[in-house]
Amino acid sequence: MAAYWRKTWPFHVLLLPALVLVFLFQYVPLFGAVIAFQDYEPWLGIKGSPWVGFEHFRYLFTYPDGKQIIWNTLIIAGFKLIANLIVPIVFALLLNEVRKMFFKRFVQTFVYLPHFLSWVILGGILIDILSTEGGIINRLLNSFGIQSVFFLGDGRWFRFTVILSDVWKEFGFSAIIFLATLVGINPALYEAAEIDGATRWQQVKLISVPLMMPIVIVVATLSLGRILDAGFDQILNIYNPLVYSHGDIIDTFVYREGLNNGQFSFGTAVGLFKSAIGFILIVISYRMAFKLANYRIF
């Protein structure tokens, strides 16, 4: 044991700052989450607050809006998951057909950009361009004789706006992994197909798509673990009381009820519920991806 420490002590020392930070800011809150099973009052502390068991978890499901919030979360996250898979794949396939490097670079430069801007910036832009009082999108619709759409004030349109703007922000960046796969395909395969008389469309259908499938499956499976992440950053920047019925998700609810209204225990319980479901899904999806990835590599 002494020999072990003599040999490895510098490694432990170098790890120490990171360990302390992770312990303090990740593991301590993990234990702090026991307040979900209490009626926590800040002045009583964890030791002094009364225990109530699963009371708050039960309350979530009897809460008038509880089911609606879980449903909102699932539907927004579900549609995002599907759209954020299909659009990048199609985009990657189309971009891969571009032969002029200059044009390819040009497109890439523009479509990757929104990913790096925060939802604060993009939310500010969206609120301006989607406004019914002369926002540029509604002006465009009006010029085609279409009535102004209340994108951020009407529940159904709000969900649509949330999903579409998320795809808009992320499709380019999500396509990188697919593009890398496409670029990595051995050109000899296409050449052989061409000699056999395959058209370009047949080459895409019979070579590009099948060879991209394993990575598509992996990405899809891994994103299942985030099915309860409907986009806290995004929604908190563009929602408003008019669309709570359709746009309120678990995370925004936790923030409003838990922090703003001071229901610490209830908020923690809802957050813990989400975290636990997410954890189970991640473990399952990693297992699945591992199986599929194995099949991909070997």
Binding site: L24, F25, Q26, V28, P29, L30, F31, G32, A33, I35, P42, D251, V254, Y255, G258, L259, F264, G267, T268, G271, L272, K274, S275
Partner: peptide, 9 residues
């Protein structure tokens, strides 16, 4: 642990 325990910490 989630948002609120972090805030409390």
């Amino acid at each position: 642990g989630g948002l609120i325990p972090s805030y409390v910490l």
